[in-house]
Structures are given as structure tokens and as C-alpha cells.
Computed example of a mutant assay.
Amino acid sequence: MDILGVDVFEAVVVAVWAMLPAYVPNNVAVLAGGGAPIDGGRTWNGERILGDGKTWRGTVAGVAAGAVLALGLNAINGPNASIFGARLPDPFPAVVIVAMPLGAMLGDMGASFLKRRTGRQRGAAFPGVDQLDFVVMALLLTSLSAPGWTLRTFTLPVLTVVVVVTPFLHLVTNMAAYMVGLKNEPW
């Protein structure tokens, strides 16, 4: 379907494909988490810096999962690749394979830092920030590491899809994790 000359279906396909290595890390971190917290239990102004929910094991597992997924997507994304008639973006450059999932994890840590500074406890809702923190940092790190690829891939229609679809995907996956007992709250 074209809207103002934009193939909406293709924009959705490119957005989801290109963001998968950023969408997966936080979910894997929940599954693989536990162990030593990144902040080592340290506080700042009486509040934990990040909290017990941000662990080394979860972060490493999340980044690794995102990188492995990007490698897998590259393996099936050949020249002129398409899916259901929509063109796929260029394969992930080597530096993006790490930058995107690392950015996603750093964005989540940044949100935890902000939550602690604003008096929110672990798991407390922080509307807007909770849904887009990882996207902003993933795209920032990706654009710094591979600006040409980022500009070619994340066009205005694709970015629009990312900003609109990500909060919905975030809520759906968190609700599912809550329903199966992996999270204590559904957001």
C-alpha cells in the first residue's frame, strides 16, 4: 500500500528487519540475567546507580544474541533480497553487528539510571522512556559507527515505523513475559 509515494509494507519490513538486533537483546537479558549487577551495588545520592536488574551476564548475553541474530539475518540477505515482495536493507556492516545490540543494552541501562534519579523503583513504569530508550541508543551507536548504512536504511518512513511500532511490540512482549512469569510487571 502506497501512502504519499511510500510503500508502507516495505517500510514496515525494513524497520522490523533492521531493528531485530536491537529488539532481541533486552528480552534475552531477562532470560539470561542474574548474577553480579553492573553497578556492583553502588549508590549515588542514596539510590542505586542502575539496580539489581542490570547484570553483566544479562548484558553480555543480550549483546551476543543481537549480534548472532544480525549475522543470521546477513546470511539469508543476499543481493537483491526481498521478503514477500519488499526489498530488504543492505546487510549489517560488521561494526553494526555489535553496535546495534550494544546500543540497545546501553539505552536500557540509561533508562534505569534515569529511573533511579527520578525516584522510580525497579520495574516501575516510565512511559515513553521504557519503550524507546533502547531504540534511541541503538540508532545513535549505529549511526556513529556506520553513518552511510544508517542513512540508507533508516529513511524517514522507516524511522516513523520504528517509533510507532516499537512501543506496541514492547508492550506485547512485556505482557507475554509477565504472563509466563518472566517479569513481575506487565510493562
Rank of each mutant, 00 (worst) to 15 (best):
P37S: 09
A138M: 07
G58N: 04
Q131K: 07
Q121A: 14
L141E: 06
V158D: 02
G78D: 01
F168C: 09
T160I: 13
A64I: 14
D133Q: 12
H170V: 03
N184W: 13
A75I: 00
V63K: 04
G5M: 10
K54L: 10
P89M: 09
L114F: 15
S82D: 12
A15N: 08
D90W: 01
V161Y: 03
A36V: 15
W56A: 08
R117A: 05
V24L: 15
L139E: 03
F168S: 11
N174Q: 07
V63I: 13
T160Y: 09
F113V: 13
A11Q: 10
P157I: 00
L182E: 10
R48M: 02
D7G: 00
L171H: 14
V13I: 11
V136M: 12
M179N: 14
S112T: 06
G51L: 02
V60K: 05
A86Q: 12
V8N: 10
G128T: 04
M179K: 14
G78S: 03
S82G: 13
L31P: 05
A81E: 11
G107D: 02
V30A: 01
L88V: 00
G41S: 09
V12D: 01
W56E: 07
A176G: 06
V129D: 08
D7Y: 00
V68L: 15
E47T: 10
T150G: 02
L169Q: 04
N184S: 11
R152W: 06
N74T: 08
L144T: 07
W149M: 12
R117N: 01
L88W: 03
G62A: 03
V16H: 08
A36Q: 15
N174A: 03
V63T: 10
A125V: 13
